[in-house]
Amino acid sequence: MRRRVLKEDLRLKKIIKNITLADWTLFLVLLVVSVAGIFITKEALPRGTDVTIEINGEPAYTFPLNVDRTIPVSGPYGDTLIEIKSGRARIREAHCPNRVCVKQGWVSKGVIICLPNKILVFVGSGGGDKSGKEIDAVTG
């Protein structure tokens, strides 16, 4: 019994030893960068005022966030229902395989993406939508 514990201990020690200093450094750097990144992106982006819906990479509709409404958008997987209610937006109903977009729930700032339907719901402020334009033209 005691010998087994010792052996287990030795094995653990070997594993820990095999983590080099470079491994630790890389891990800590990545941790700091990602955690800092989360806070920076949260701070840098102002709270949204309107909702832009893009279909196939092209802006299709823009609605103010403070007016409640439900918008049906058709895509390759049938109709997708986008709901705007009390300053937030969500995809209420979709028929894509994973329904990642539906599971994401309400968003008051940021994006909801549905890759299969090629729908992107962007909650932001009006001035921000022009930045992606040139790239749209190249790929579209």
């Binding site: 990602s34 989360i38 992106t41 990479g57 940021g110 994006v111 993406i113 930045s131």
Partner: peptide
Amino acid sequence: LFIQRIEAVLIISPV
């Protein structure tokens, strides 16, 4: 290929 919106990528990348 799909999103073409740098803000969207920037928001999600740290997470």
